[in-house]
Design a protein around this nucleic acid. Structure first.
Lengths: 215, 215
DNA sequence: CTTGTAATCGGAGTGCGTTCCGATTAGTGT
DNA sequence: ACACTAATCGGAACGCACTCCGATTACAAG
């Protein structure tokens, strides 16, 4: 045992029901001082983002504000992107609850087609709302979106719904990726800044896509 | 006049027919030593990529191999991503020629629907071929893809074809973005590495998408 | 309470992208 | 040829993400 890298980021991903946890059992939960420092770090980061914006969220500054060393941050969150993902996690949990166990049409009870549409609209709103943080996470580690817990949850959710809504023979996994791809933060940023498109335009475009692919 | 920042990256983007060049007229073409150094830099970078791979392509190493200072690289290419885009440019020019003036179905002469399909297939192959470089460019500056010249060319090309192929009332600009979005290097990487999908699977999925949206 | 030890802490150190600015050189008018 | 000026060059310096490892501390066993 190396004893030098015993606890990789124990959270970040929210519910992550498909992340391949090594033994799947939980090891030592977390030491008291470690938990206290995690809280301090998250509070300090939240404070800094609220005060100066995401671009000022440097690791050294967070460490200083939290009154700890930078090594502690990397032990808890892996890298800067992990810290940003952790900040997104709280909202993420609520969002996942909504479409997994909430009221229709987002939650169970409505037609699969309607649920897909409601989900994509809600996700578009969520990306627009948490815009800066999502962009910052993407900037620190490109492709992190796809490796993150939330993307996996979205994908399996869509695959489930699409399989119910479509005849077999089409690749539901690819269609799910293709429907999520236009909702990347950098693209939506470009569509807003350069093309002058609004959230309404984007939702309308997604509706067109759905009308064709799901009848 | 500041005289300190007179020549922002004068190329990189290939043909870029829609980049908003400030006065649209060409200023002083380029001094002889500057042109010579650009060539040296590109040759050194190509050599390093061929020898050690993209991850070894550091700015300091390129400067050393080319026998110049790092400041020169930044004057010529703006940043690391600009250098990588310049490396992609040569292949890019050939690719653009193919679908703008080449033989059908990629070039003019075929039905718009067939040209869209051929274009997306060709682009998928191109992304797969230039995988490492595209990923590196994206890593240096997230969202650079959308701001780059090539993306603008692809987008206007698709908008033109889609407008010909579809009845009015649908947003061709969004549809073009939505068709290009699944061909991002990070997503294709994820689909290959994690989902085990092949280039064939991706093309088949794109065909499904087209069958629905274009009949 | 004491002791053992494994996880944790913290900050100096490293690598790399990027900037800054004095020295140098190319191109032009005389 | 010669001088003038503006663009170019080069490398020292900076900021920030990330690593390393000796010192410290929490927790459990005796």
């Amino acid at each position: 045992m190396d004893s030098r890298r015993p606890a990789p980021p124990p959270s970040s991903g929210a519910l992550e029901p498909l992340t391949p946890l090594p033994p799947a059992g939980k090891a030592t939960p977390e030491r008291a001082d470690a938990a206290r420092n995690r809280r301090r770090i998250l509070d300090a980061a939240t404070r800094i983002v609220a005060r100066h914006g995401v671009q000022e969220l440097t690791v050294d500054l967070v460490a200083g504000e939290a009154g700890i060393g930078v090594g502690t941050i990397y032990r808890r969150f892996g890298d800067r992107a992990g810290l940003v993902f952790a900040l997104l996690d709280e909202h993420e949990r609520g969002f996942q609850r909504e479409f997994m166990t909430g009221p229709p049409p987002l939650g169970p009870g409505a037609e699969p087609t309607a649920r897909v549409r409601a989900f994509l609209h809600a996700l578009a709103d969520r990306v627009a709302a948490q815009f800066e943080l999502i962009l910052a996470a993407e900037a620190s580690a490109p492709g992190a979106r796809y490796r993150s817990g939330p993307y996996g949850v979205y994908h399996t959710h869509l695959v489930t719904l699409l399989t119910q809504a479509r005849p077999p023979g089409t690749d539901a996994r690819f269609l799910a990726d293709a429907l999520l791809a236009p909702l990347s933060a950098p693209l939506m940023d470009h569509q807003r800044q350069v093309r002058g498109m609004t959230a309404q335009d984007i939702k309308a475009g997604l509706d067109d896509l759905l009308r064709w692919s799901l009848g």
